[in-house]
């Protein structure tokens, strides 16, 4: 589901809400991703995005473990 938001297109579920948009303030275009629940922002450049695409499902799943980074304990 998408709606208009100043931070970009919103990608949302019952578990998370993020906005994405192309950012052109740098020397080449980046993806700006904002966690709308905390306001935390991350920019992803083309090589990082390509790397995400090639991330094995298992590795991506590991990132979803809440103790992996954010709630490391």
């Amino acid at each position: 589901m998408t709606e208009i938001h100043p931070a970009g297109q919103v990608i949302e579920s019952e578990f998370a809400s993020v906005a994405v948009k192309l950012d052109e303030t740098g020397n080449s275009v980046r993806l700006r991703v904002e966690d709308l629940r905390t306001g935390r922002v991350r920019f992803l450049d083309a090589l990082e995005l390509e790397s995400l695409v090639w991330l094995a499902d298992g590795h991506l799943t590991q990132l979803l473990d809440p103790s992996h980074e954010r709630w490391r304990g």
Binding site: G26, N27, S28, F43, D45, E48
Partner: peptide, 11 residues
Amino acid sequence: DDKAGNSSSFR
């Protein structure tokens, strides 16, 4: 090779 860009890493 490019004159300018935005990237956290270079390949």
